[in-house]
Simulated scan of single mutants.
Amino acid sequence: MATPQEQQTRVALVTGAAQGIGRAIALRLANDGLDVAVNDLHGKIDSLNAVVEEIRRLGRRAFAVTSDVSKEDEVKAMVEAAVSALGRLDVMVANAGVGSSGSVMDADVEKWEQLWEINIRGVLLCYKYAARQMVKQGAGGRIIGYANVGAYCISKAAVRSLTQTTALELREHLITCNAYAPGVIETSMTVRDADKEHSPGFGVKSLLKVTDLRTGQPADVAAVVSFLASPDSHFVTGQTISVDDGAHFS
């Protein structure tokens, strides 16, 4: 027998959805039959609106909301706006994140802390306000985070741990919490400034020189998120799934 959650159209909220992996996830979830709210920074509203139009052409409802996920009041308002526009929240994909490269000995602590604001604080805030909304609805849900080099590795390790803790806390509410850890995915972040030292693109280029890893596409990650967001994943929680051509085994 279908649960109340499965009898109505489910709603997802995807952060960092103006491009790359986030955009691919939003479109995949729309293809899966979900209505989708998409989020990104205020300066990316035009790109967000383009994603909204793509989702609507797939026959699903869509809504764009801009916010900085490192700011608690904006995350709270983002979730409230998505629920007001689309009626509920069943899937949160905390995809927004930034990357960098560089050694520990050369670390610019201020820059590392700026990165942590997005990659750790931002994910925590998305988990917090999504969980509150899902518990209030009483129909379970799916919370999914982006977990993955320096400061980037530290922040993504924190997301893995946060995901496990959140999964234990929310299991009684039938809310699962999992994460996906992409390898080298072809996005603007991984190819931009590939010849500029300390840029994400430079780090990716250096990694590929010393390994035989393949690069993946945003759709490869979106396929994994599709499963984690689905009713079929109800027995999977607290896990971080690597999508990286075997670069990491856990």
Rank of each mutant, 00 (worst) to 15 (best):
T66S: 14
S188D: 10
A130P: 00
W112L: 10
T211R: 04
T165I: 10
K128Q: 09
V159E: 08
G122A: 09
N31V: 02
L124G: 00
V236K: 08
R57G: 11
Q239Y: 01
T240I: 07
L228A: 05
V91Q: 04
A94S: 12
S161Q: 10
K136E: 14
L162M: 12
G16N: 04
D220E: 09
F249E: 11
A26I: 03
L174A: 11
A130N: 01
H234M: 13
A167S: 13
N178P: 04
R171K: 14
T237Y: 01
V75L: 04
Q5Y: 07
G201F: 04
I144D: 02
D212V: 13
V75P: 00
E6M: 11
D35W: 06
G16R: 04
A167T: 05
S188V: 15
H173E: 11
Y129E: 02
A50G: 03
A181N: 06
V159I: 14
V159H: 03
R88I: 06
A139L: 15
R88P: 01
L213G: 00
D106G: 12
D90G: 10
E113G: 09
G141P: 00
R23Q: 12
D193R: 10
G59I: 11
D40Y: 00
R61N: 08
V38S: 02
A77N: 06
L208I: 14
S242A: 14
D32L: 07
G33M: 11
N95E: 00
L207T: 10
Y129W: 09
R60V: 03
K209R: 15
E186A: 13
L162A: 11
I118R: 06
V52Y: 03
A229K: 03
R132S: 13
S103W: 04
A85C: 08
V11P: 04
L86I: 02
I25S: 01
Q239T: 15
A81N: 05
I143R: 00
D90I: 03
A77L: 07
E169N: 15
M1S: 14
T215R: 14
E197T: 10
G102F: 10
E6T: 14
E6Q: 15
A247F: 05
L174T: 02
R121Q: 08
Q133W: 00
K128A: 02
R60A: 07
L27G: 00
H173T: 02
D212T: 15
D212S: 15
D73S: 13
V149N: 10
G145Y: 05
S155A: 13
E117V: 06
V236R: 01
A62S: 14
V243M: 06
L58C: 08
V123K: 02
K111M: 04
V79N: 02
A2L: 15
P218C: 10
K128Y: 09
I144P: 00
D108Y: 06
H42S: 15
I55L: 08
E197M: 12
D220I: 05
Y146G: 07
G183I: 07
G238A: 09
D68G: 12
M134S: 05
D106W: 09
D212Y: 13
A139S: 08
G20A: 07
T211P: 07
E80M: 11
L58T: 01
V123Q: 07
L58Q: 13
F249D: 06
T187W: 01
E74C: 12
A151S: 15
R121L: 11
A12H: 05
